[in-house]
């Protein structure tokens, strides 16, 4: 678990360095007239320092994921991200109804051991609910079928 904390610190240092490098391209200005880059740069420096401190000293194990937990979460993560990507691609091209059904179907693969029939029924139910809420209820300006 110690390794996880060192990695956590390294992520902070990396993020801070990337952010700081971008902040350096902005004018920092002076103390009485701060430029747009001043606080971002300070934040980046702070993040790098905190990252170093985490890597060196942090032994707190609250909330660290166990390797088997990470493995168990990969499948739901991929299913959920694929569903979101499908939604982003489909909503303006396919329309509200097919997109919500397809995205639900994709997201349902986060769960194992469900019959194909349940997945299809679930997708159709969510499609009907979404059409009711977002098209008829909130009048979202997107066509029901087609772009």
């Amino acid at each position: 678990m110690r390794r996880m904390n060192i990695l956590a610190g390294a992520i902070c240092v990396f993020a801070g360095a990337m952010f700081g490098a971008m902040a350096l391209t902005l004018p920092t200005g002076s103390l009485s007239r701060m430029g747009p880059g001043f606080l971002p740069l300070a934040t980046a420096v702070g993040l790098i320092c905190v990252g170093v401190a985490i890597a060196l000293f942090d032994r707190d194990e609250t909330g660290l994921a166990l390797p088997e937990e990470i493995r168990a979460q990969l499948r739901p993560l991929l299913a959920v991200l694929a569903a979101i990507a499908l939604f982003a691609l489909g909503i303006d091209r396919l329309g509200l109804m097919p997109t919500s059904a397809l995205a639900t179907f994709t997201a349902s693969f986060a769960m194992r051991r469900i019959s194909l029939v349940s997945r299809i029924v679930l997708s159709l139910v969510v499609m009907v609910i979404c059409t009711a809420i977002f098209h008829f209820g909130l009048r979202l300006s997107v066509s029901l079928v087609g772009g």
């Binding site: 995205a103 639900t104 179907f105 997201a107 986060a110 809420i133 977002f134």
Partner: peptide, 20 residues
């Protein structure tokens, strides 16, 4: 509930600016 929640979240993000 979870697949439904994922789709609701997508609609939520989309509906603010109607932008994918």
């Amino acid at each position: 509930l979870f697949p439904a929640i994922v789709v609701f979240i997508c609609f939520g993000a989309y509906s603010v600016n109607a932008n994918p």
